[in-house]
Design a protein around this nucleic acid. Structure first.
Lengths: 106, 106
DNA sequence: CAGACGTGCAACCTATTGGTTGCACGTATA
DNA sequence: TATACGTGCAACCAATAGGTTGCACGTCTG
């Protein structure tokens, strides 16, 4: 998951798809890399659960699924909570490891 | 920064240091990798601004500095805000301070 | 039907990464 | 002073990642 966000191009792609769903070919025209590279990146994001493939006719449209981001925020809040006031507050909303509702950490 | 968190060992190290400051040699004894590998990981975390070196006599103690985590949370809130209710709330607390985003939504 | 277009698959190349080992250097301490 | 201990530096290695190109396949459309 963090691995998926580690690459700058991947973050750009995620931000773009977050704006509005798009296909690999479309996204490739906005980046200085080939379509195949974009496909690989999108696959990585999809493997991390951040994207969802949606076939429509002969094209494949990618849509965002932000749940993993919440998990990541939860982890960061847990790790940094005792050092940062704002992060500490988050630990209540975003529980550790995918807790959906207001589970209390610790 | 996300790159620094991409590696599992690095996340474990950060969590450990978050618990209480420690030296590379200490941390290495808790992991199945060599001290040198730990040093490299700690350097990566330090380069990302997540850790701070603190020399004390002949040893070097690492301490956490969680500011970059807030930036990361800010980025995630911005990207996932329109899709996730909880993330949307964060965008107010953790502004786009320093966090660079790919594109503005349409 | 024929062709254009979007996609999937595979091979391949290079740079980076996570890991190791060996050794030199400075700082405590017996 | 002699020695142990924590650290820094460098070389090295195997695996992975990001990227490319080429081609085959399915699906629209004139």
């Amino acid at each position: 998951m963090f691995n998926a966000l580690a690459d700058p191009n991947r973050r750009r792609l995620l931000a773009a798809v977050a704006g509005s769903p798009a296909t690999a070919t479309e996204l490739a025209s906005d980046l200085p890399i080939s379509r195949q590279a974009v496909v690989k990146h999108l696959s990585a994001l999809a493997d991390a659960g951040l994207l969802e493939r949606e076939r429509r006719g002969r094209e494949v449209r990618y849509r965002m699924t932000p749940e993993p981001l919440s998990d990541a925020v939860g982890w960061m809040a847990e790790v940094g909570g005792q050092w940062d006031q704002r992060l500490a507050g988050l630990a209540r909303t975003f529980g550790p490891s995918g807790a959906q509702r207001g589970e209390m950490p610790r």
